[in-house]
């Protein structure tokens, strides 16, 4: 199922139009280009499958209760400490998704929901190396 992406008004639409226009003219700064690349990639994934594992989509219950609309969060960036996020809701029509907000700058010093503990090298088991289970 393909979803049509809409931008929330006014900020999201203005941001998208500005980045797209300047991107097509080659007028984006280095940082803007990186952000716009990640955002458009994430939107491409979102339109094809909002549950794509790369997006780590989940509902923000507090915001859903507050606004009376299911508010979802998806990550633009993954596996880094400075993960960027976008917030969206289904609608206005069926098979539509409206982008409500996007974080352009990561909060420094914050961490992901899950942190992987680094692994060390595993030695071979002496009993296994002798052919016993």
């Amino acid at each position: 199922m393909i979803f049509t992406i809409h931008m929330g008004v006014p900020e999201m639409r203005a941001l998208w139009d500005d980045l797209l226009a300047r991107g097509q003219r080659g007028k984006l700064s280095g940082e803007e280009r990186i952000f716009f690349n990640k955002w458009s990639k994430a939107l491409d994934l979102l339109s094809g499958n909002p549950r794509h594992p790369g997006l780590r989509t989940h509902e923000i219950d507090d915001l859903s209760r507050k606004f009376g609309v299911k508010v979802w969060q998806s990550y633009l960036k993954n596996r880094k400490s400075d993960a960027l996020r976008m917030f969206w809701a289904y609608g206005p029509q069926r098979h539509d998704i409206t982008i409500l907000a996007v974080e352009r700058h990561p909060d420094t010093g914050k961490r992901k929901v899950y942190e992987r503990i680094p692994l060390s090298r595993f030695p071979s088991s002496p009993s296994r190396s002798q052919g016993r289970n």
């Binding site: 929330g8 008004v9 006014p10 900020e11 999201m12 915001l63 606004f67 609309v69 508010v71 917030f87 809701a89 609608g91 206005p92 409206t98 982008i99 409500l100 907000a101």
Partner: peptide, 10 residues
């Protein structure tokens, strides 16, 4: 931003 977007969406 979220609040404004939702208000306009509704």
């Amino acid at each position: 931003q979220i609040a404004r977007s939702i208000k306009n969406l509704k």
